[in-house]
Amino acid sequence: MNFLSEYTYYIGAFSLIIIGLYIILVKKNLMKVIIGFSIFDTGIYLFLIAVGYLREGTAPVFSKPGLDAGKMVDPVPQALVLTAIVIGVAVLALAVILAIKIYAHYGTLNLRKIKEQRW
């Protein structure tokens, strides 16, 4: 089981990504698709954090003296995730408001029925 312990975080992250994609592909309900995006995004954040992980590392904050810089995890992925989360929130907010509007216009959230724009 060396393999699993080696790659647990990656596997978890990618499982989330794949599950999210599966939901986006298969589910009909717009809200569920949005939830799928949430899961997909979460998987990506987890993956980014995992990339920067250092075994037995500490947070990259010199909150008290005497912390070993060599033991700190990579701060860059954390910064990226911070940015990515904000972007994710923005997209999510827009998606939700559009879903509300879709419901107001079509009376349904079923994506298979919202097909006025085609061909």
């Binding site: 994609l21 298969v26 994506l111 298979r112 919202i114 097909k115 006025e116 085609r118």
Partner: peptide
């Protein structure tokens, strides 16, 4: 007709 209007299909194309 490949642009079916169903966004699920579109996502499928991307994947």
């Amino acid at each position: 007709r490949i642009y079916t209007g169903d966004v699920g299909n579109y996502v499928m194309y991307i994947i």
